[in-house]
């Protein structure tokens, strides 16, 4: 596809996405908002995993840290636009901390280190009742208002979240086009060579985790205000897994990979409700099959066809 066609398709999808909720019921609007919220987290994870080549099974922990920051501070009456950067910075710092094991170990070790981090965060959320409300969670999280305009209704809140998602996507796009994006890719493709060319792999590894975490944190703040209630369950390791799968299924290291992947993991379960519990079983085995036949994710299908065509 030419660049121009791509832009047309992108613009058309954005318009469709913006118009669609007008015709949907409350639950449909909720789902689309939820999609945006998850997308913020998976786009961040795509940077960590897909572009910088680090393994992370702890994204939901950052999502949770962001959500709990929002829950605690917003119920204390802090303004939304103060809480948002605080949560992002807190997650950025937590991401830096999680990046340290990544400097020592890679791949599967790192997968378990990040998974372990998620378990730890989950335990804190569940057990530190004074701070987090334990399993009862924190309720009545207020939604923000924008220059006096209330965002309590589903539709305005959707547009509010949608706009934030687009802004975040633009910021990431900028970052990945900058020399940083190239350095991340160098770190992913060949860290030893990168270091010999002056790429500070320590700094970029930590940044990859921290930026990915900050995106999840921002997503978490929107999540808390969307559902108005946080408890530990949505931030379990399972959620991290789902986010990683969203990135991989869509096509990791591709800008639009998480968009497609998040549709698959967030919206598809809703459409496949008739399958009930079987859905996740099918999903699990589908991931296995996908890895065997299409390790590059769904977005690699066109290239597959091209390669086939060229070979024949």
């Amino acid at each position: 596809m030419s660049t121009r066609n791509r832009l047309v398709v992108l613009f058309a999808s954005l318009v469709a996405f913006a118009v669609l909720p007008i015709f949907l019921k409350t639950y449909g609007v909720y789902l689309m908002t939820l999609f945006c919220v998850y997308l913020m987290a998976t786009m961040g994870l795509n940077l960590t995993v897909g572009y910088a080549g680090q393994m992370s099974l702890g994204q939901a922990a950052f999502f949770g840290i962001g959500a709990y920051h929002a829950a605690i501070l917003l119920t204390l009456g802090w303004p939304f636009f103060v809480v948002l950067p605080i949560a992002a910075v807190a997650c950025f710092a937590a991401g830096l901390a999680l990046g340290f094991p990544a400097l020592r170990v890679q791949h599967h070790y790192l997968a378990f280190a990040t998974l372990g981090f998620n378990v730890l965060v989950y335990l804190v959320m569940r057990n530190e009742e004074k701070l987090t409300g334990g399993t009862f969670g924190i309720a009545n999280i207020p939604r923000p208002s924008l220059v006096g305009f209330s965002l309590d209704k589903p539709l305005p809140f959707f547009y509010f979240t949608f706009a934030a998602t687009i802004l975040l996507a633009l910021a990431l796009w900028w970052l990945l086009r900058s020399p940083w994006g190239r350095a991340f890719a160098a770190l992913r493709d060949n860290p030893i060579r990168a270091e010999s060319l002056g790429v500070n792999i320590t700094a970029y590894t930590l940044l990859a985790f921290a930026i990915g975490a900050a995106c999840a944190g921002i997503g978490g703040v929107y999540f808390a205000t969307l559902v108005n209630f946080v408890e530990p369950a949505p931030f379990h390791v399972t959620a991290s897994l789902t986010m990683l799968l969203a990135v991989i299924v869509g096509g990791s290291g591709r800008f639009f990979g998480p968009m497609l992947g998040t549709v698959v993991v967030v919206l598809l379960p809703e459409w496949l409700r008739f399958m009930q519990n079987w859905y996740l079983a099918v999903f699990g085995f589908a991931v296995v099959a996908l890895m065997i036949w299409l390790p590059g994710g769904l977005l690699s299908i066109p290239e597959r066809f091209k390669a086939k065509g060229a070979a024949e």
């Binding site: 393994m55 791949h107 599967h108 997968a111 897994l241 990683l244 799968l245 991989i248 009930q276 519990n277 079987w278 859905y279 996740l280 079983a281 099918v282 999903f283 699990g284 085995f285 589908a286 991931v287 296995v288 996908l290 890895m291 065997i292 390790p295």
Partner: peptide, 28 residues
């Protein structure tokens, strides 16, 4: 089939297998 693609696809596939087996027992 996966080992030649390196570590990551195998990690993802076994994660998928883990979900699949778990949910198979749960649902079935």
């Amino acid at each position: 089939p996966l080992i030649r693609h390196g570590v990551i696809p195998l990690v993802i596939a076994t994660l998928g297998l883990s979900i699949g087996l778990k949910q198979l027992v749960k649902a079935g």
